[in-house]
Design a protein around this nucleic acid. Structure first.
Length: 949
RNA sequence: GCGCUUGUGGUGGAAUUGGUAGACACGCCAGACUUAGGAUCUGGUGCCUUCGGGCGUGUAAGUUCGAGUCUUAUCAGGCGUACCA
């Protein structure tokens, strides 16, 4: 009897041994070079892992194992992003504490992950909801609170430095990131009381309380970040979101806009993610120009990237939310303006996004164009956004499509400024062409600038220069990136280490951290509308005892109320990669030694859906920690690989209308049928398991079937993997049926890691078959190990080294699917070659170890090794075995090889050519032909190219 | 609209620098062994064909002795983003 490939036994055995031997435990080892592999840690949802989750984990696991075999000291940790909305929503529905369900889910995830055979160092596991972990989230927040951002040195600095500056110079000479451009003197600063000073400092802190427009989701009872809202509804739950002004904790992410942009050039991420981030940051270089409101001394500022169009301005537009609206509205227009503002307020964010209706109202006032002295009417319209630039624009309808539509709608003049631009039908938005229609120099009393004859680019530069020189405005860089709103009105999140003394926020002393999440009875907002933490009884800070005490003790003398908000999801996930380096340290987020050893993540694997969320926030967070000197690298993730999404492949059965009879796919067109989703787990290779189907639902127990070729064939479609479509495939089932090694191989064989693809079990047998063949390579008919110490043949060596070369280069480029193909070919070749050589067989085991670690360990052991295959050094390819022994020489005409002959590789080219030309078979191809040239490609084909005489 | 990205058999997907397109796998066909097969093994499988050959990498042109690969135009799908001045 041949030795059977008993994957269940093998895999279980090795899981136990890996745990027992701490095979995957890593420690800092200065003698070895480090390599840090990281997966985006999962949120442990109640549904458990589906086959899409492990895709990235398997890909990075292969890479981590490969790097380890290459001699690197590899850190490959795993943990859980365990704060979040779903657990809390579930808690509200069922009354179960989110911690309980979260821990249950974590256990289930762990169980599922362990089955797949990852080389995670579980001693380094982190959970964002563990106090020992979120202590450092709170700590970083406090550090941000205690910092401001200096624009000149492009760096975070301690707030005390700013205070000293204010005490001496006021805001004079200040160039810092700020919410509002405040101006005050040192005397004024010193004259203010603590409350006022505290308010003013909020304008500069990196973590600050700010009155901002937020995305308020009434259904979830919380605010959401911009990236948590898509098309006006919440990402979680899909509930409507409205705009509301609230006082919230914010992070001044915008201060780092330029560094976030510049950093992109130093990291190896896909161009599309970098481009997404560039767009999200939205740097735009332009000019701010001041316009005076006619008949007043009031001025306002607009932002434009098209300074060259100053002479084409025909009206001005303000955002409805702009504070200027009240100032410019004349008595005569008051009623109309107010009606319009009411209309705009009634429109949801979603409506504004979906239909771009042209609406607006004239304010009654005019603005003076500083270049022409013309009076331009000031309009108010929702197409101008309060949050970008200055919330006011100069409208140039000839060269901006939105202004054009507005001008056409309200009958405002359109003045073209570029030679040959036809603006009768649409605006000419392109930034190219020759400028015309600007007044000749010195012809207007207002301005001696003439742009005629310049290109648009030159005209922009000239206008910028003119504006700055004449004090009409200044050159300005704007960013679209907004500050992150950092508080949530939820329970299941990190509490803020903040209390309020007479309404002024105070930080809980650093040495008292963490401020632990209190117990509550209800996870809903309180009756007075406070967030759920308002339900906590023991939730006040005693300055005297430096402890959290009962709320009833609040006396506003030494006992004060604690913050009721919690932190958002991205708080805990922003610096977790640093914590893995030193997860049990209670003195620091990460020790200097650990940080300097592991540096940053060499390979980060995760979904691209985090492009504008986590991947921006954690870059920001790390840059801040870099400024603080905590992290020695400015960019957290050196290389990023985005694994594609695994879509579901749904199966359908076809019920004949008004019957309980189901017809197979090929015959369904003969009947009137309704397709019904059927659980993919009772379908194999699109063939329905009829008995399982009958047992699936009571109403199908009596179902009848019209079969084709004795089978019921199901239809299929690619859809999102979801419970409701019955297309969720659980990895446990695959592991149960085929083993973890097959699952690993198959997930990689499915296609390139970075590509989205549907889950489809149709090909899984091929991978399983391969592993069986690979296993059989090592055993004879009687089940004995068949390896000898004999010398390998040249064929054996060629097969082996071809494989080494292919797999080594494939792993570096994540082309695992072609590596697996190469293994299949090599296995077939070695089987045919009757390879028995220990030398070759051992190397085969080493090569397959990253892909199929269980089978590799088992074979490694039966071949007599006592060490783990994980530490077996990766083989080097010896090119000398790959040299081709023959070349083919052919005659090529019209791009086709018509005839060819084989020669030894070292044959003299001239002789080969002669021999081919003289070959009888070649004659008909050479008749009336002339030789154009001969082409030699080493190791490949050598051709004689001919064409008609 | 803008940005990124992808188009190759019945299917998933291969193809170094431009060099025999379709590796490998699924599926399908034929055969072997089986009481049976959702097991195993062997062979075949791009399309058309009058069996000479012809056509083939979304479409159309171009460069080249030679193009899936380079250039230009165009079409289609996917992802992201959106009154950003």
């Amino acid at each position: 009897m041949a030795k059977e490939y008993n994957f269940r036994e093998i895999e279980q055995k090795w899981h136990e041994l890996w745990v027992k031997n701490k095979t995957y435990h890593v420690t800092e080892d200065p003698k070895r070079q480090k390599f840090y592999v990281l997966n985006m840690f999962p949120y442990p949802s109640g549904a458990g892992l589906h086959v899409g989750h492990p895709l990235g984990y398997i890909a990075s696991d292969i890479y981590a194992r490969f790097k380890r075999q290459q001699g690197f000291n590899v850190l490959n940790p795993m943990g859980y992003d365990s704060y979040g909305l779903p657990a809390e929503q579930y808690a509200i529905q069922t009354g179960q504490h989110p911690e309980k369900t979260t821990f249950q889910n974590i256990d289930r995830y762990r169980e599922q992950l362990d089955k797949i055979g990852f080389c995670f160092d579980w001693d380094r596991e982190v959970r964002t909801c563990a106090p020992g972990y979120y202590k450092w989230t709170q700590w970083a927040f406090q550090k941000m609170y205690g910092s401001f951002f200096c624009n000149k040195c492009q760096q975070a600095r301690p707030i005390a430095e700013l205070v000293s500056h204010l005490e001496v110079h006021g805001t004079e000479g200040l160039d810092v990131a700020q919410s509002e451009d405040l101006t005050f003197t040192a005397e004024e600063w010193k004259s203010w009381d603590e409350t006022r000073q505290s308010e003013v400092l909020m304008n500069y802190r990196l973590a600050f309380l700010g009155e901002t427009m937020v995305n308020w989701c009434p259904k979830l009872g919380t605010v959401l970040a911009n990236d948590e809202v898509v098309e006006g509804v919440s990402v979680r739950g899909g509930y409507p979101v409205e705009q509301k002004k609230m006082r919230q904790w914010c992070l001044r992410v915008s201060a780092y806009a330029q560094r976030l942009l510049d950093g992109l050039d130093t990291i190896q991420w896909s161009e599309s993610i970098k481009e997404t981030q560039r767009n999200w940051i939205g740097r735009s270089e332009g000019t701010e120009v001041q316009f005076r409101i006619a008949d007043t001394d009031e001025e306002f500022t607009i932002f434009t990237t098209r300074a060259d169009t100053m002479f084409g301005v025909t009206f001005m537009v303000l955002a409805p939310e702009s504070e200027l609206v009240a100032k410019v509205t004349t008595a005569g227009q008051k009623q109309e303006v107010e009606a319009y503002l009411t209309y705009v307020k009634g429109r949801t964010e979603r409506e504004r996004q979906i239909d771009h209706k042209i609406t607006g109202v004239f304010s009654g006032s005019y603005a003076i164009n500083p270049f022409t002295g013309e009076r331009n009417p000031i309009w108010i319209s929702e197409y101008v956004l309060a949050g970008y630039g200055t919330g006011a624009i100069m409208a140039v309808p000839a060269h901006d499509s939105r202004d054009y539509a507005f001008a056409k709608h309200f009958g405002l003049p359109i003045v073209p400024l570029i030679e040959g631009a036809d603006v009768s039908e649409e605006s000419y938005d392109a930034k190219e062409g020759i400028v015309c229609n600007s007044p000749a120099a010195g012809k207007t009393p207002y301005c001696d600038l003439s742009l005629n004859g310049l290109t648009v680019k030159e005209a922009i530069a000239a206008t910028k220069k003119y504006v700055s020189e004449h004090g009409l405005g200044r050159v300005k860089v704007n960013y679209r990136l907004r500050d992150a709103i950092f508080s949530r009105q939820r329970y299941w999140g990190e509490p803020f280490p903040v209390y309020y003394r007479h309404g002024i926020p105070q930080m809980v002393p650093e040495e008292c951290l963490p401020v632990e999440l209190p117990h509550v009875e209800s996870f809903l907002p309180t009756e007075t509308g406070e967030p759920p933490l308002g339900n906590a009884q023991v939730w006040a800070w005693d300055e005297a005892s430096r402890k959290i005490v009962d709320k009833s003790l609040i006396d506003e003398k030494t006992v004060f109320p604690l913050e009721l908000y919690t932190m958002p999801g991205f708080a805990g996930s922003s610096a977790y990669y640093l914590r893995y380096m030193d997860p049990h340290n209670d003195k620091a987020l990460v020790s200097r030694e650990a940080d300097e050893y592991w540096q940053n993540v060499d390979l980060y694997v995760g979904g691209s859906e985090h492009a504008t969320g986590h991947l921006i926030y954690s870059r920001f967070w790390n840059k801040f920690l870099f400024d603080l000197g905590v992290s020695c690298k400015e960019e957290p993730f050196q290389k990023l690989v985005n694994q594609g999404m695994i879509q579901g492949r749904s199966n359908f059965v076809y019920r004949i209308k008004d019957t309980n009879t189901f017809v197979s796919l090929g015959l369904k067109d003969q009947y009137e049928t309704t397709p019904i989703h059927v659980d993919v787990n009772i379908v194999r290779a699109d063939v329905l398991d009829v008995e399982a189907f009958k047992a699936w639902r009571p109403e199908y127990a009596s179902a009848e079937f019209i079969l084709e070729d004795g089978k019921y064939v199901c239809g299929w479609a690619i859809e999102k993997m979801s419970k409701s479509m019955f297309n969720v495939v659980n990895p446990d089932m695959i592991v149960e049926r085929y083993g973890a090694d097959t699952l690993r191989l198959y997930e990689m064989f499915l296609g390139p890691v970075e590509q989205s693809k549907p889950w489809d079990t149709n090909g899984i047998d091929g991978c399983h078959r391969f592993l069986k063949k690979f296993w059989q390579l090592f055993w004879d008919k009687d089940g004995n190990l068949q390896v000898t110490d004999g010398e390998p043949t040249p064929d054996n060596l060629k097969t082996l080294h071809k494989l080494i070369k292919k797999v080594t280069s494939d792993i570096e480029t994540f082309s695992y699917n072609t590596s697996i193909s190469a293994f299949m070919v090599a296995t077939t070749e070695l089987t045919q070659q009757q390879c028995r050589s220990r030398q070759v067989m051992e190397q085969m085991v080493i090569l397959i170890a990253p892909f199929a670690p269980h089978i590799a360990e088992e074979l490694w052991q039966v071949m007599g090794h006592e060490t783990t295959v994980c530490d077996a050094p990766w083989p080097e390819c010896n090119e000398q075995y790959l040299v081709e022994s023959t070349v083919r020489l052919g005659v090529q005409f019209n791009g086709k090889v018509k005839f060819s002959m084989e020669f030894p590789v070292d044959a003299a080219p001239q002789q080969m050519v002669e021999q081919v030309m003289q070959a009888p078979e070649a004659e008909k191809y050479l008749k009336n032909m002339q030789v154009v040239k001969t082409i030699a490609v080493p190791g490949r084909i050598v051709n004689i190219v001919v064409k008609p005489v």
